[in-house]
Structure formats: C-alpha cells, structure tokens
Computed example of a mutant assay.
Amino acid sequence: MSMRILRAGLAGLAIILVALSEGVAHEIVGNRLFPATLGIDDPGVNDELSIPTVAAFGTGDDPSFRQRDISGEFSKRITETFAVSLGVTHSHLGTPGGPTGMGADGFQNLETTFKYRLFKDPVHEFVMSVGLNIEWGRTGAQRIGAEPFNTTTPTLYFGKGFGDLPDTLSWIRPVAVTGQIGYAVPGRNSTATFGVDPDSGNPIVDTEFHPHVLNWGGTVQYSMPYLKSAVIDLGLPDFINRFIPLVEATMRTPVANTLTSGSVTTGTINPGFLWIGKGFQIGVEALIPINRQSGTNVGVIGQLHFYLDDLDPHGIGRPMFGSTASPATPLARN
C-alpha cells in the first residue's frame, strides 16, 4: 500500500459529516467488519477518505535520510462493487546529520487505483478483490524521488475471518487475516545519465535499471467489536470494545530487471491498533524495518480515516450508479 494526501476542501467536508454520524460501516462480510488498514489496502470496495496519514521514519539509504510523509486518499464507488481512488503524498527528506527542518520537500507522484470486488462469502467471512494501481510519472518532484515514468501495478486483495470455527475455538473467531499481492511494472526499463570523467575528460554513461517489483503483505487482526457482538460480551467498557489490535507486514521484492537494484526484499513489520468510532477510525502503528536496506530506526505511522458510506449514505457515500446493498448483519455495527 502507498501513502497519499487529498487536496482541496474534502477535509472540511469530512469533519462536518462526523457530526452526522450514527453508525460504523466498512466492508462487512457476514458478521465481519474488515477495517481500513494503514500498511496495505483492505479488500473492500467503499466510499472513504483517509486524511491525514502521517508517517516518520529513517530511510534505507546510506547515509540514511529522515523522512516525514503527510498523505491522504479519497475513494469513490462507481457501482456497489467497483471503486476508484485518488491520492498523493507530500514528503520531507531531512539532510543526514543536518539541522532539523533542512532538506528537500515535494509531492510524490499522483496515484489512481481501480478496484473491483470479485467475490464475497458471508458464511465463511471471505472476500476477494482485484485492482489496478497507476502511479503517474512526472506528477511529483524528482528531487524527493518521484519517477518521471508511469508504474502500473495489478493487485489481488483478500480477507478471511475465522467466525466459522467450531464452538471449541470460539475465542479465535474474532481473528481475521487480510493480504495483498501486486506486481509493479515500470513504464521504462532503464534511465541513462550522461557525464564526463573528471580525470580523463572522456564521456561516460551511467545506466540505472528499473526493476519489476513484487509488492506483498498482510495483516493479522483481533477484533474486540466482533468478540462482543458475535462471540461473548465480557462487559468491558465501550471504549475497549472498539479496539482492533493488529500486526501488518508490508514487503517489496525486486524480481526482474534487477541488475542495478539488487533483489533484496525490503519492508517493515507494523504492530499497532485501530479504534473504530462512529463513522470514522483512528489507527497508530510502529514501523519496524526488517533489515538495514529497509530503514535505520523504528518509525511511526498514524491515520484518521472516515467512512463516507456510513456518514452520508444517501449523498457522497452512495455509489454513482445502482443501489447500495444493505449489510449482511447488524452485528458488525455494535
């Protein structure tokens, strides 16, 4: 999953809509609510707004840069099963060892994702979607790493809840897993940089090959709302019953055209939690690099996410074409 920022007045709209909130909704499959996650995209197709998403971490460069991202994403259903999202990220790269605030700033490339829900099984709490993500080259600042060419990533998403386990394993029923796997294809195989050898004065050519990358990851979640509504009510405070502790993994593996990039897998393990409110959720996770190439310190990411299909189901949260299907069960709204 990439992090993105939404421009214009949608932030103010979302804040106004929170006051009108009366429920909790997202991708509901049987008794299961699959929430929006921070590291990878969830398997649902919904009207939603993530703004802001804020992350801070040390990059895997040598020397490492301190990077801060502020991002957002707006997703709109065209039909009940098909949605288009738009997002972009603003990044600040701090100078290694330099004063705070020094470095480079700019927007990453604009991204568009088209997602279609293929299959939904309420009995087994299973959902699968396919998507196509396009990163539009030359829409961001090359000084902070935005590429001058498009990158296209077809992706498969899935989610599975364990509510169909027998009564002897009822305490595991609140567990769910989600995952995604995508294949990123750059629009350019290589980039050549021309220069002059300072010693001989001869022309030189430096060629960077752009790899094809397997983007993959997953989450393991334990839903306190599901525990209360579909397993057992322990009489816990409502504040506790809205938590979903989870661990995410986000990985990138170069698999082709890797002459200059290498083929080392990079990524982070992200333990954290989501808190499901009425029409919105808050998420916070740590970003733990899996190796030196992935980063130099533990970072952090936080997000405020709005469920527009619940905040305004007859307006901005309604599919553009067709009617809205009602949730399979009211349990996930408790």
Score class of each variant (00 low, 15 high):
Lys228Leu: 07
Phe107Cys: 10
Thr265Ser: 13
Asn270Ala: 14
Gln221Asn: 15
Val185Arg: 12
Ser223Ala: 08
Phe57Ser: 00
Pro63Glu: 05
Asn270Ile: 00
Thr112His: 03
Pro166Asn: 08
Gly317Lys: 05
Gly60Lys: 05
Thr89His: 03
Gly161His: 07
Pro52Ala: 08
Pro327Thr: 12
His124Glu: 06
Gly159Val: 12
Ile15Glu: 13
Pro96Trp: 09
Phe194Arg: 03
Arg4Gln: 07
Gly98Met: 08
Ile301Phe: 04
Phe321Pro: 02
Gly218Pro: 11
Leu156Asp: 05
Thr113Ser: 01
Ala146Tyr: 00
Ile16Asn: 12
Gly94Ala: 11
Gly145Leu: 09
Ser200Lys: 01
Gly235Cys: 08
Leu227Gln: 14
Asn270Pro: 09
Ala14Ile: 01
Pro225Glu: 01
Ile240Cys: 15
Gln293Ser: 15
Pro225Gln: 14
Thr250Ala: 07
Leu214Ala: 13
Gln221Ser: 15
Tyr157Trp: 10
Thr266Ala: 04
Gly322Phe: 04
Phe65Tyr: 01
Val177Phe: 10
Gly44Cys: 04
Asp312Met: 09
Ala192Asn: 10
Arg4Ser: 09
Val177Met: 14
Ser323Asn: 13
Arg252His: 05
Asp41Phe: 10
Ile172Cys: 15
Lys120Glu: 11
Thr112Asp: 00
Gly279Lys: 13
His90Leu: 09
Ile276Glu: 14
Val175Phe: 15
Pro63His: 00
Gln142Ile: 09
